[in-house]
Structures are given as structure tokens and as C-alpha cells.
Design a protein around this nucleic acid. Structure first.
Length: 586
RNA sequence: GCGCUUGUAGCUCAGCCGGAUAGAGCAUCGGCCUUCUAAGCCGAGGGUCGCAGGUUCGAGCCCUGCCAAGCGCGCCA
């Protein structure tokens, strides 16, 4: 209907320009929107006010001319000029009822569209370092990324979800060393566990597995391990220097092969846990992309060579730099350190080059908001490689500040004091978790109150929507118990019996659903869907309290049942996009 | 110090890329279950949209300054 009105208005505009009433070069972008207040009709447009300025005409006068030039449409019952020059359209409610048939016909497909058809998009999200279990911060990115991917799919994009596994680099070495030290402790060696090591219980558990599987094969004398190491932080030293020395010592004493075994044990164990955790959370990927595969295949070197050939690299202070300032970055960035090691950024350049070469029309990275300073250099690298940087879109997810009631929960991966995603899921349940995470705009700070999220009371908004769905199901069960037959086509023939304002409101709500999906998808804003579902559920609850559905009058009864089953279907479709269940009973 | 983001009801947040009287949930107060599930509904109170200017028919939204908060400013990842 919205699009129909837009077309009508465009026709009116071109009529007016062809008759010379309006200047021909008039370029206006007007909007047709749903009104907030029923007094203003069903739809309103700001056309006359927008065009009035350009045409140097009084908006209300222009509005009159537009209305006069407007082609007739049976569904429009009344047109009014209001306020400073709004044109308000009143729509015949009966003409909207077709949506009930469409919902029944399309079922789960209602709300999908083809705006993204033929385009491919990759969504990379979570991509947490496999150095420990996912915590509640990762959960928000996981829920957000999953829903963004599903929304894009719903509007026709071909979507590929990807997790970038940082299975190389210093942090992974520190994990390997931490596992080994815990293993040595299990063996009975006396060692000093580094301040900067990974202290979580999961590290001990991996060490225990290692011991059970391989016995004492990797045992080395504790004294030998600790001999001559630079002091750790609590002893007045530097924790970073200390931990690096431990890593070197581990590599030395274990040798390449054994070190790799310990390293792999840590990586596989944690990555396996992450995969399982995400799967249980309803988050799935088409691809797990290994960072190490990039360096192993020489892709990183190749990417740097390409940049060099294009004149973007230079050498200074023994390091190799990328001249990103020439493309808007704050400062140039090192890609190869003076010790010959590639930086993380070098891998990232190769990774994004790889993504571009895979041919996606659009690439979406979902990052924690603390990485926002990283965007200019990645975009610069894409541009430097001759690609269009606008193909990459970086969506930021603000880390949730965790509270337990009034008290702020401090988190640190290394200290092991963090609330894991798994703990949260177990406490709150998957539905509430997923709903809660995407309820708020993702790039906004969010206070995540664990007490609230874990409450099974009506404070938890997910129940409100689910309850509306369950209520429809319950009505259908009551129908059976009364031994009444339901005739869907018969009900469709009597939709004109739906004359209550509650019914018209609900129908208008159904009409909006596809628009909401499209907007939520294209703007990557799942919270719009959440808000919509709450509104639709509310309109249903209001209707439920105001009118009886299971009435003696069969035509009216079947018409109402068709309406509420359409509502049920839309609630189901929306919840499904959020990966929240739509229960039949509660 | 510089950059990015944010500031809306007691709390948590929306506000459809400049529109009509700024909304919702929770919390508070008062009503509604012999009738399809009360995890629901109806009603009430609650606001200087951080502050001050500016742009125009019109600003919570755009511009400038100030105040406050978060994040980022490594040859870390």
C-alpha cells in the first residue's frame, strides 16, 4: 500500500510538471509513512512541504494541486490536508484484508523478499581468539551476527557466515605455554605460574586431558623450565618479557614437534568448545577460516608483495610500513617488524584480500566496538590493493557492561574471572538470551543486568511475545475441545465481518511486517524486528481481552480465526528469524 | 591532548536517516479472573530530549562551542 501511494504521488507529480504547474527540474525525495496517530489517517506524506520549498509555493496550496492530480484509487476513502501541509490518506480497512490471505498462502515465506536477490554477502562475526571459552561479551556479537545473516538471507541475499580463527600468534603461544605449565604441575613439578598466563580452570582441564592421553611424555624438570627466566611482574619484573621468555623456553625444551602437539591440544580443545557453545546457542557458520592457513600458503607474503609493487610500502627503523596515512588513516602502520615477524595487521590485509578475491559483493565484519580505531587502516589496505573499500562494511557491537543488580561485574579473560556465555545460557535459557542480546541497538552501550536476564518473571520481555503465540495455539485447542469445525476459505469469504478497530489495527500490523524485515535487514538492525514483535504481540493481547474469538456466529468466528492465525504465523516467522522458539503452550 | 561513539521519564531503552501533542518496558499507584491461559488487559502519575547558541515553515535528530561518560590512539592481538 505504501508503495502504491508512492506511485500515485509520482504520477501526480509528473502530471503537474507536464502541465507546467511545477518546474520540470524539480527533484524531490518525499516520504510516505505510517501515521502514528489514527486521526491522521493511515498514511501521510510530506511531499507538499518538501516540494513546496523547491517550487517556492505554499505547501497547503501545492497539496491541493497534488490531490487534484492524483489518480483515483478504490482503496483510498479520504484524503486530507493537515497541519503545515501533510497529505493524509485514509485507507479502506477492507482493502488491507488481503494480507490475511497472503500470510496464509505464504506461511513461513511471508515477509521474505527479493531486494537482495543475486547478490552475495559474507558476514564474519565473533572470531574470538581461541584462548578461552566465549564470554557474555562474545554472546552479543554472536546473537547479532546470526540475526543479521538471517535477515539478509530473508530479503534474498546469498549469505556466507564465517568465523576467523586466530590460530597463530603470540596469544596462542601464551595459551600453549599455560597449558604446558599446568600439565607440569599435574605431573608434580614445582613451577611458578606466570602472572600473565591464562589462569582459567579450562587450562587445567586441557592439561589433564593431555596427561591422560600422552602420559608424562612432555614432562621436563621444573627447575630447568624456570632456570634463569627474567622476573615476573609481582617480583618486580615485566610480565610481558617474562611470559615471552616462558614461551621460548617451552619451545626449546619441548622441541618443535612436541610443542606443536601441546599447542594443538590447546587450540583444538578450545575451538571445539567454542563451536559446540555456538551451535547450542543456535549460531552456525558455513566456514571456519584459519589465520594460520594464510601464512602457511604464503598468502600474507603475496599480499605484502602486491602492496609493495603498487608502491604502498616503505622501510624505516628496520621495519616495513604501510603508508595508510595517504588513505586517511591517522598514522602509518607496521606490517613487518624489525625482528622479521609479520604483524597481526599483515595477516588481516591478506585475509581481506582473500575475501575480496572470493568475489562477495558485500563483506560485513562484525567487531567489538573497542576495535573501531582499526577500521581506517583495513579500509585503506583494501583501497591500496585497488578494490572499492565500500564493499566492506564494519558493524560495531558495543561490549555489554555487566551488572549483578547494582554491582558491576569485572571481567578479565586472563584472570579467569568472567561469566561465560555457557553459564549465561544455562541460567537464562537460550530464548531469553537471544532476545535480550538483540533487543537493543547493537552499537549502543548496553547495561546487561544478570539478575534481570536470569529472572523468569514477566520482567523478561521475551515471554510477552511468546505468550501471544501460545495464546493463539490455545484458542485453536479450545476450538477442538468444543468440537467446532474451522473452515478457512469460509472465513476468508467473511473477512468483511472484521469491523472492530482492534481488528483493523492488527491487520495494519501484519501489513507492516515485510517492511520491517526489509529495513531491519538493509540497515542491519535486528532490534527493529524485536520492537515490532512486541507491538504486534501487544495489539493481539489487547484484542484478546476485548473480544471473544470462539463465538457462535460461524462466519465471524472463522474470519477471526483467520486473522489470529495470521498473527500467529507472523509471530512465528519473526521469532524464527531471531532463533527464539515459538511455544504452543506456556 | 587528538579521534570515534554516546547523553531522551526513577531504571533500561525506542524514536522509521528534519515532521503533527516525544514513546515503550520495568518500577510506583489504582482497577479487571464463575467466560478462549492474569507470563494478560484498563487507567494514573512521571520529561528544560546534557547545557548554550545557530541553520528553517518546523530540530530529540543537522552545524558550532561547552560539560559529562565509554572506547581507541604499540614494531600487541
Amino acid at each position: 500500500m505504501k508503495k502504491r501511494l508512492e506511485t500515485l504521488l509520482h504520477t501526480a507529480l509528473s502530471t503537474l510538471t507536464s502541465t507546467g504547474a511545477l518546474p520540470g527540474d524539480l527533484a524531490v525525495s518525499f516520504q510516505v509513512e505510517h501515521t502514528r496517530d489514527a486521526k491522521h489517517g493511515d498514511f501521510a506524506t510530506n511531499l507538499a512541504m518538501v516540494a513546496g520549498k523547491a517550487a517556492r509555493m505554499n505547501p497547503r496550496q501545492l497539496a491541493e494541486q497534488v490531490i487534484a492530480a492524483l489518480p483515483a484509487d478504490g482503496a483510498v476513502t479520504k484524503i486530507e490536508i493537515a497541519g503545515p501541509g501533510f497529505i493524509n490518506f485514509f485507507i479502506d480497512p477492507q482493502s488491507q484484508f488481503d494480507v490475511i490471505r497472503r500470510v496464509h498462502d505464504l506461511g513461513a515465506a511471508f515477509g521474505m523478499s527479493g531486494v537482495g536477490a543475486g547478490k552475495t554477502v559474507q558476514v564474519e562475526f565473533v572470531s574470538a581468539n581461541p584462548t578461552g571459552p566465549l564470554h557474555v561479551g562474545h554472546g552479543r556479537g554472536a546473537a547479532y551476527g546470526q540475526v543479521v545473516a538471517k535477515l539478509l538471507k530473508a530479503v534474498g541475499f546469498e549469505v556466507q557466515r564465517e568465523y576467523y580463527v586466530n590460530d597463530a600468534g603470540r596469544q596462542m603461544d601464551i595459551l600453549a605455554a599455560s597449558v604446558w605449565l599446568r600439565y607440569l604441575e599435574e605431573c608434580g613439578e614445582h613451577i611458578h605460574f606466570p602472572y600473565n598466563g591464562y589462569r582459567g580452570d579450562y587450562v587445567r582441564s586441557i592439561a589433564g586431558d593431555l596427561l591422560r592421553r600422552y602420559g608424562q611424555r612432555y614432562r621436563r624438570p621444573g627447575a630447568e623450565v624456570m632456570a634463569g627466566l627474567p622476573a615476573d611482574e609481582p617480583q618486580g619484573g615485566d610480565k610481558e618479557i617474562h611470559i615471552d621468555a616462558i614461551v621460548d623456553r617451552a619451545k626449546l625444551l619441548l622441541g618443535e614437534i612436541d610443542y606443536q602437539t601441546v599447542f594443538q591440544a590447546g587450540l583444538e580443545n578450545i575451538l571445539g568448545d567454542i563451536r559446540e557453545d555456538l551451535a547450542e546457542f543456535g549460531v552456525h557458520y558455513e566456514q571456519w577460516f584459519s589465520e594460520r592457513s594464510l601464512s602457511d600458503s604464503g598468502a600474507v607474503v603475496k599480499a605484502l608483495e602486491k602492496l609493495d609493487a603498487l608502491g604502498w610500502l616503505y622501510r624505516k627503523d628496520g621495519a616495513t610500513w604501510f603508508a595508510s596515512t595517504r588513505l586517511g588513516d591517522e598514522k602509518d602502520r607496521v606490517v613487518v617488524r624489525d625482528n622479521g615477524q609479520m604483524t597481526y595487521f599483515a595477516s588481516d590485509i591478506a585475509y581481506h584480500l582473500n575475501k575480496l578475491e572470493r568475489g562477495f559483493d558485500r563483506i560485513i565484519n562484525i567487531w567489538g566496538a573497542d576495535h573501531h580505531g582499526y577500521i581506517p587502516r583495513v579500509k585503506a589496505s583494501i583501497q591500496a590493493l585497488g578494490a572499492d573499500a565500500s564493499r566492506l562494511e564494519v558493524l560495531l557491537v558495543q561490549f555489554a557492561v555487566l551488572y549483578r543488580g547494582e554491582e558491576k561485574v569485572q571481567m578479565s579473560t586472563r584472570s579467569g574471572e568472567f561469566v561465560t556465555l555457557r553459564q549465561l545460557r544455562n541460567e537464562v535459557g537460550r530464548d531469553a538470551c537471544r532476545f535480550f542480546y538483540v533487543m537493543r541497538k547493537s552499537d549502543q552501550h548496553m547495561d546487561f543486568d544478570l539478575q534481570l536476564a536470569t529472572s523468569r518473571s514477566n520482567e523478561n520481555p521475551v515471554y510477552y511475545v511468546q505468550y501471544a503465540h501460545a495464546r493463539v495455539c490455545s484458542v485453536l485447542r479450545q476450538l477442538d475441545e468444543k468440537g467446532w469445525e474451522r473452515n478457512v476459505p469460509f472465513g476468508m469469504d467473511h473477512l468483511h465481518r472484521l469491523v472492530e478497530s482492534h481488528e483493523h489495527t492488527l491487520v495494519a500490523g501484519l501489513v507492516r511486517y515485510p517492511e520491517v524485515i526489509e529495513r531491519a535487514a538493509l540497515q542491519h538492525e535486528p532490534h527493529l524486528l524485536v520492537h515490532y514483535l512486541r507491538e504486534l504481540a501487544q495489539e493481539f493481547h489487547v484484542y484478546y481481552n476485548a473480544h471473544q474469538f470462539l463465538v457462535e456466529d460461524a462466519p465471524l468466528r472463522d474470519a477471526r480465526l483467520n486473522l489470529i492465525t495470521a498473527v500467529k504465523q507472523v509471530l512465528h516467522n519473526g521469532l524464527h528469524l531471531l532463533d527464539v522458539s515459538a511455544p504452543e503452550t506456556m
